[in-house]
């Protein structure tokens, strides 16, 4: 792993990316394809709560939902992970103990990242010591936009080191990077510095995840894999609240990265309200009846 050669990174045409993204949206998933895609999506969720008002009770209930999204059908789910603040990691860890569900924690002065590196690294270590399997860090957007790419690379590398065995997801906060060229460069730097996943957004800034931004990041992952043989995961987060949109992301992953990436080891949705829409669509596929919100548990 070394600092990437930025001259090798092709420029990006934003209009072209948007056109390409909208063409993925034209795919029409029906029948068995749709059903299996919905089931897959339900296993790719990082069920998330990142509020100042988060409490032990809220986190516990959310974990139940992640473990068993639909009580009546144990073949559905479980979600990939629950995502919480460091102080709630231990609670979550206890709730999901013995299951496949991982505990992810945001760290590094989430969501702004505006703190000394020492504190940010300390926060990662704390979360890991509390039992976090995965760390969702934020990059220093200020540093990046000021052109200090080296500095960013070093920070991510140090965070990776601080993670130890835990997986590192690097949040680019694409809504603050302004251009797709920046998204691409930040993706390259993060992957080179050791990111296991790259992630679009904190969910605290609009716009959060979009198809064009995700497309650029997936393309970066594909090229990185082509160059190094290393697979990096992708997590769009924020703004994906309905099943139709979620499936469009999956189509993009399938057609761009291939079947290898179609598991929660390599792809996640960061979402808080997507679960129930996926479930409603699943029920619609199975029963032929359009569903109502009150028939699905809101945890």
């Amino acid at each position: 792993m070394a600092f990437p050669n930025l001259r090798d990174i092709a420029p990006i045409d934003e209009v072209g990316v948007k056109e390409r993204a909208s063409r993925y949206q034209k795919r029409s998933l029906k029948g068995e394809t749709k059903l299996s895609a919905l089931r897959l999506a339900l296993t790719m969720l990082d069920v998330t709560t990142l509020e100042g008002k988060d409490s032990v009770g809220k986190v516990k209930q959310m974990c139940r939902k992640a473990l068993s999204p639909m009580a009546s059908d144990p073949t559905i789910g479980p979600a990939a992970a629950v995502c919480v603040y460091p102080s709630l990691v231990k609670i979550a860890k206890n709730e999901v103990a013995g299951s496949k569900v991982k505990v992810a924690s945001v760290a590094t002065a989430f969501p702004s990242g505006q703190s000394r590196l020492r504190e940010r690294l300390g926060e990662i270590k704390y979360a890991v010591s509390e039992g976090a399997d995965e760390i969702d860090m934020v990059i220093s957007r200020g540093k990046f936009l000021a052109g200090d790419y080296r500095g960013l690379y070093d920070e991510v590398a140090k965070c990776k080191e601080a993670c130890g065995e835990a997986h590192l997801k690097v949040i680019l906060e694409t809504g603050e990077l302004e251009t797709l060229d920046n998204v691409r460069i930040a993706s390259e730097i993060s992957m080179s510095a050791g990111a296991d996943f790259i992630k679009t957004s904190t969910g605290k800034i609009a716009p959060a995840a979009t198809l064009p931004v995700t497309l650029v990041m997936l393309q970066a992952i594909a090229d990185y894999h082509e160059r190094t043989g290393i697979m990096v995961g992708m997590k769009p987060a924020g703004g994906i609240s309905d099943a139709k949109l979620a499936l469009q992301y999956l189509v993009m992953v399938k057609e761009l990265l291939g079947k290898k990436w179609l598991s929660n080891k390599w792809f996640r949705f960061g979402a808080s309200s997507l679960t129930n829409d996926l479930l409603m669509q699943l029920e619609k596929q199975r029963t032929g009846l359009y569903q109502g919100g009150d028939y699905f548990s809101k945890d």
């Binding site: 998933l29 029948g31 068995e32 394809t33 749709k34 299996s36 897959l40 399938k254 179609l262």
Partner: peptide
């Protein structure tokens, strides 16, 4: 037509 393993969409 399985989404993960299939080569074609339904």
């Amino acid at each position: 037509y399985d989404f993960i393993n299939g080569d074609e969409y339904a």
